[in-house]
């Protein structure tokens, strides 16, 4: 059965492995190039407060953006592709071509056929996701040490840690289940693409509730001094200590800003702070990275198991 699985799915396996290899080369090349640039241009004492250090940092940021823009779409598109080309055809193509009547009438029982295929391909998908995560995790520090971590940007968050593996596995399970329901490859592929997009949006919304948000009371500014935190919500705190969404009857003039300017809003905020108001921010600090990673992976793994069970049930009838 291992040979059968390899022979039937080798195209997907080879293409995915090839893609990861090309991506690895690209990331390695970009990291080596950036390191060389730093070695050549950064004067001693960097990173530090010197002007030259700032210039190097800006140049590094530009180098990072160039490569990041190439794979910025990966967190969404890769799982969708995995689901569409690994998961959807697994059962749908057998039904579509009638070969399930060949495959499931040999002496290997259907449950074993399913078990071998799901575990081997599922395992390969998880391995691929982890490999992507390792490569991105090794590459990012070259550019982003001290700039940001991998928590606040949901796109980056989904490409490091265990998230890619979980998303790939989930998409694979979703595709397999869709294939067992539709018994047609194309509709199953379409469902996977839509399903992955919807799931990602839903989990993003849900992620605020993975933990009780931390609370910080700010005075004099409405900006949290942590670029990488995930903001959940914010509110004004009256001098009495009561939280309100919109301060009313404060006596501070509020005017609408025109164009890009935020002068009026800033003036209003300064007036409020002057009258003893404070600004409460609810947020998740970057230190919760692994907690969030494992929570999301746990949800996706459970969903994958449920979808896998659905596919198995549908297939065994």
């Amino acid at each position: 059965m291992i040979w059968v699985t390899w022979r039937q799915h080798r195209a997907q396996i080879i293409v995915t492995a090839g893609f990861l290899a090309v991506l690895g080369v690209l990331l390695l090349g970009s990291a080596v190039e950036a390191s060389r640039y730093v070695a050549e241009h950064a004067p001693p004492g960097c990173p530090g407060p010197a002007v030259a250090c700032g210039e190097v940092a800006v140049a590094l940021g530009r180098r990072y953006d160039a490569v990041y823009s190439v794979f910025g779409w990966m967190p969404l598109v890769l799982p969708a592709l995995i689901g569409a080309f690994w998961g959807a055809p697994l059962l749908a193509r057998e039904y579509e071509r009638g070969t399930h009547r060949l495959a499931w009438t040999q002496s290997v029982p259907v449950w074993r056929w399913l078990a071998v295929k799901l575990s081997l391909l599922g395992g390969a998908v998880v391995a691929g996701g982890l490999l992507l995560s390792v490569m991105v995790s090794l590459w990012r520090p070259v550019f982003r040490t001290g700039v940001d971590s991998t928590f606040g940007n949901i796109g980056v968050f989904n490409m490091v840690g265990v998230a890619p593996a979980a998303w790939w596995l989930y998409a694979f399970a979703l595709g397999t289940a869709a294939g067992s329901l539709f018994r047609r490859t194309l509709p199953a592929m379409a469902l996977v693409v839509a399903g992955v997009a919807v799931s990602m949006f839903t989990l993003f919304q849900l992620s605020d509730h993975y933990a009780e948000p931390a609370r910080a009371e700010l005075s004099g500014t409405v900006l949290l001094d942590d670029h990488d935190a995930r903001l959940v919500r914010a509110a004004w705190v009256e001098p009495s200590g009561r939280e309100v969404a919109e301060p009313a009857g404060t006596g501070c003039p509020r005017r609408v800003d025109v164009g890009q300017s935020s002068r009026n809003a800033e003036a209003w905020q300064a007036c409020l702070f002057g009258k003893g108001y404070r600004y409460a921010v609810y947020y998740h600090p970057p230190s919760r990275f692994w907690r969030f990673q494992w929570t999301e992976a746990g949800i996706l793994a459970l969903a994958s198991a449920a979808l896998g069970a659905l596919a198995v049930r549908r297939t065994l009838h």
Binding site: G98, T99, L102
Partner: peptide
């Protein structure tokens, strides 16, 4: 069983179909 329309894996060679049989029986 030989099902209607004799389903086989189109992309397999004849020899590979025999390997398929050996591995699944």
């Amino acid at each position: 069983f030989v099902a209607q329309d004799k389903p086989l894996y189109e992309s397999f060679t004849v020899a590979e179909m025999l390997v398929f049989g050996r591995r699944t029986n």
